[in-house]
């Protein structure tokens, strides 16, 4: 268990009342195993569908596209959102605060942010994907194309034909 073992254990206690409460093992591409509650793992639509299909729950899920560092961070998000209730205003506010801190931390390291985003995309974790893409989108917002290129380290590769088109559109618009 990488993170939040106490919280996960407490959640596991609660989950035991339900018949379907299990622990699930996720394996990163480096072979490191992470044990999470099922509620936490169900945040991922990919895993959820596999669990529901009654597949290899016991064997664990190998995730060849995700490295350990990223997976740990993703599980941190899943634990928070999977194991906590969000019924009252306070609970929602707490989650929102978690999201805010979570993304602020990620935003500092852009490369890691993209890794997490890709993992979220691969695992189909909707909330996390929305969170990270919004964060990236916010950096694009309000920038000129040149600024965007600098921010993302993109090389200008538009052809002359493209430029012609853009010019024409420009006069149009």
């Amino acid at each position: 268990m990488a993170t939040g073992s106490g919280a996960a254990a407490a959640a596991a206690d609660a989950e035991e009342k339900e018949s379907g409460s299990r622990m699930i093992t996720l394996t990163s591409n480096e072979g490191k195993a992470f044990v999470v509650t099922e509620a936490s793992a169900r945040q991922s639509a990919t895993i959820r569908s596999m669990v529901d299909d009654g597949g290899c729950v016991d064997k664990g899920f190998p995730l060849p596209n995700v490295d350990s560092k990223t997976l740990a961070r993703v599980i941190q998000y899943c634990d928070e959102h999977g194991n906590k209730e969000a019924h009252t205003v306070d609970e929602r506010a707490a989650l929102a605060k978690f999201d805010k801190d979570f993304i602020a931390e990620l935003d500092a390291d852009k490369a890691f942010l993209y890794d997490v985003t890709m993992a979220a995309n691969y695992l189909h974790i909707q909330g996390l994907f929305a969170l990270t893409t919004q964060c990236i989108a916010d950096t694009i917002k309000g920038k000129t194309p040149e600024e965007i290129r600098t921010a993302f380290g993109i090389e200008y590769d538009l052809t002359a034909q493209d430029e012609e088109e853009i010019k024409e559109e420009d006069t149009h618009a």
């Binding site: 893409t133 919004q134 989108a137 694009i140 965007i148 090389e155 538009l158």
Partner: peptide
């Protein structure tokens, strides 16, 4: 799909800018 996920969250004005960033 990741790029799409980001671009979807942009307002038109930023989309217009993004459209001339690269091919």
């Amino acid at each position: 799909d990741l790029l799409l996920g980001v671009l979807r969250r942009l307002p038109p004005i930023s989309l217009a800018a993004s459209r001339v960033v690269c091919s």
